[in-house]
């Protein structure tokens, strides 16, 4: 039954992608396809990265309302980026190869995230409330430190950082596509290999220890993958707070199963449909200028509140 749903989702995503590529082409079809193809690829990467990162994080933290974005993962990435600009100076920074920079940033991000969030998951074990608050507060703190650094550097440097601090799906940084695709696909592949372990980790630390799957090791590996995925997505479009939440909530609704063999691809597909379909609708149908991120944030929040209220009534 879930297989059919996955198939349907795949078809829906294909339809959205085709619509996005071929509707409303003015002028050279070839040029339009090139241009749109890159954007489409970026949207798909972001979608898959955000969705899989959110689902994995919810599994290892044992709840369905925390996402990497809420816990401050993307804030951490922006901070690392800002710190790099401050340390190197904007001119030197801009001369470096963007792909190499992204690799370095992603590596730093992994190290920092495993240290910070690994500690958090260990300390907050079984105390979800404390973990949640810590994450939210940490996110504010990281953003504030970034803000402080941005005030300290001069305006020309600020412009470099600013590009990464605001989410714009329509203006994804397509130059980074190659490296991003590499990192993202690698991380997604490893996540797929972890699917059975994730099923067990979802049972909680005690049960997974008892079943021979030490939770700390699994958490650390998942955190590494999540960091890579968030780094890729943030580098491409900037931070998107509630998108992961929206996608994971919808995933559990459409695919009510615990099996990550279904959840991981399912969430990536759903997220692709939302991003590609949404971008297509905004660009071609409504001719809106509003960035999709704002709409997604709004819808994501509303859907979340509705789900919560509905879930509570049951």
């Amino acid at each position: 039954m879930y297989r059919n749903r996955l198939l349907l989702l795949t078809l829906a995503l294909l339809a959205c992608a085709l619509a996005y590529l071929f509707t409303g082409v003015k002028g050279s079809l070839e040029f339009a396809l090139m241009f749109r193809g890159k954007k489409l690829a970026a949207l798909l990467l972001i979608g898959a990265a955000q969705a899989v990162a959110a689902v994995m994080f919810q599994t290892i933290s044992g709840n369905r309302i925390l996402t990497p974005a809420i816990m401050g993962f993307d804030a951490l990435y922006v901070l690392i980026l800002t710190a790099a600009v401050v340390a190197l100076g904007a001119p030197a920074y801009q001369q470096l190869d963007p792909g190499l920079l992204m690799l370095t940033n992603a590596t730093l991000m992994c190290a920092a995230a495993v240290m910070l969030f690994g500690l958090l998951l260990r300390k907050g074990q079984g105390d979800l409330m404390r973990m949640l608050l810590t994450g939210v507060v940490l996110a504010v703190m990281l953003r504030s430190i970034t803000g402080l650094l941005q005030r300290v550097i001069d305006p020309s440097e600020y412009a470099v950082v600013q590009a990464a601090s605001f989410a714009r799906f329509s203006r994804a940084e397509t130059d980074l596509l190659g490296v991003s695709a590499l990192l993202c696909c690698g991380a997604l592949g490893l996540a797929w290999r972890m699917r059975h372990r994730l099923d067990v980790l979802a049972l909680g630390p005690v049960a997974s220890t008892s079943l021979g799957e030490p939770p700390l090791r699994g958490q650390r590996r998942a955190l590494l993958l999540i960091s890579v995925l968030v780094a890729v997505s943030t580098a491409l479009v900037g931070p998107v707070a509630f998108f992961g939440l929206l996608v994971s909530a919808l995933t559990y609704l459409v695919l009510p199963t615990y099996r990550h063999a279904i959840l991981l691809p399912g969430s990536a597909l759903i997220s692709g449909v939302i991003l590609v379909g949404g971008q297509w609708a905004l660009e071609r149908v409504f001719a809106f200028t509003t960035p999709l991120s704002v709409v997604v944030e709004f819808l994501g929040g509303v859907v979340f509140l509705l789900l919560l209220m509905k879930g509570l009534k049951r």
């Binding site: 309302i65 809420i70 979800l128 409330m129 949640l132 608050l133 939210v136 707070a241 509630f242 939440l245 200028t289 509003t290 960035p291 704002v294 709409v295 944030e297 709004f298 929040g301 509303v302 979340f304 509140l305 919560l308 509570l312």
Partner: peptide, 29 residues
């Protein structure tokens, strides 16, 4: 539910985020 105190700040943050993004939407337009 009162036995889930963590939901209150979380709902607050999301609720604030929704209203905030409505403001950003208008601001952007």
């Amino acid at each position: 539910p009162p036995e889930e105190p963590l939901l209150v700040p979380l709902v607050g943050i999301v609720y604030g985020g929704v209203i905030g993004s409505a403001a950003v939407y208008i601001g952007f337009q």
